[in-house]
Amino acid sequence: HSLRVHINGKDFEVHNADEHVIRALEELIRRGADADELKEFLERWKG
Rank of each mutant, 00 (worst) to 15 (best):
E40F: 06
H15D: 07
K39S: 14
V5F: 11
E37F: 07
N16I: 09
I22H: 04
A17D: 03
G9K: 01
E40K: 13
H20C: 04
I29H: 04
E26K: 14
R31D: 13
S2G: 08
F12S: 01
I7D: 00
S2L: 05
A35G: 08
S2M: 08
A33T: 08
D11L: 15
R23T: 09
V5C: 03
A35H: 13
E43G: 04
N16Y: 08
G9Y: 01
R31P: 01
A24L: 11
K10A: 06
H1F: 03
D18Q: 10
I29Q: 03
F12Q: 01
H20G: 10
H6L: 04
D34Q: 11
E27P: 00
E27S: 08
K10T: 11
N8K: 05
E26W: 13
I7Q: 01
K10G: 02
K10I: 13
R23E: 09
K39N: 14
R30K: 14
H15W: 08
D18A: 10
E40C: 04
E26L: 14
R44W: 13
G32S: 03
H6N: 14
V21P: 01
V21G: 03
D34T: 13
V21E: 04
L28C: 03
D11H: 12
A24M: 10
K46I: 15
D11M: 13
R23D: 06
K10F: 06
R30G: 10
N16V: 08
K10L: 05
L38N: 00
R23Y: 08
D36Y: 10
N16L: 06
A24D: 09
K10P: 00
I29F: 06
L3S: 02
V5S: 00
W45D: 06
I22T: 04
D11N: 07
E43C: 03
H20R: 12
E27F: 06
D34L: 08
I22Q: 03
G47T: 07
K46Y: 15
N16H: 11
D34E: 13
G9R: 00
R31V: 11
E40P: 01
A35Y: 15
A17M: 11
E37K: 09
E27Q: 10
N16T: 11
R23C: 04
L38F: 11
H15S: 10
S2A: 03
H1Y: 03
A33Y: 08
L42N: 01
E13K: 03
L38D: 00
L25R: 00
L28K: 02
D18G: 07
R44Q: 15
K39G: 11
D36V: 09
L28R: 02
V21R: 02
D36E: 12
E40Q: 08
R44C: 11
G32P: 03
D18V: 04
K46L: 15
G32C: 05
E13Y: 14
G47V: 11
D36G: 08
H6T: 14
A35V: 15
E43H: 07
A33S: 06
E13P: 03
I22R: 05
N16E: 07
L38M: 09
A17T: 09
E26S: 08
R23N: 11
K46M: 15
A33L: 06
R23F: 10
D18E: 11
A35C: 05
A33W: 07
K39H: 15
E37A: 13
A35N: 09
I29L: 13
D18M: 05
E43S: 07
E27I: 07
H6D: 05
W45H: 10
W45Q: 03
V21D: 05
L38S: 00
G47E: 15
L42S: 02
H1G: 13
F41P: 00
V14P: 01
H1C: 07
D36C: 02
F12M: 03
K39E: 15
E13F: 12
V21S: 05
S2K: 05
K39V: 15
E13R: 03
K39A: 15
G9T: 00
R4L: 15
H6S: 14
I7V: 09
I7H: 03
E13W: 15
I22M: 07
F41V: 08
E13N: 04
L3M: 09
I29K: 02
A17F: 03
F41Q: 04
G32L: 03
L38A: 02
E40G: 10
F41R: 02
V14R: 00
E27Y: 07
E27V: 08
V14A: 03
R4D: 07
F12G: 00
A24C: 05
H15T: 11
L38Y: 04
R23V: 08
E27H: 07
E37W: 04
K46F: 15
W45K: 01
V14S: 01
I29V: 10
N8V: 02
K46D: 14
I7M: 04
A33P: 04
R44Y: 12
W45R: 01
L3D: 06
E26V: 12
E43N: 06
D11W: 14
R44F: 12
R23A: 10
E13C: 11
H15F: 10
R44G: 14
V21A: 10
R44L: 14
A17S: 06
H20Y: 12
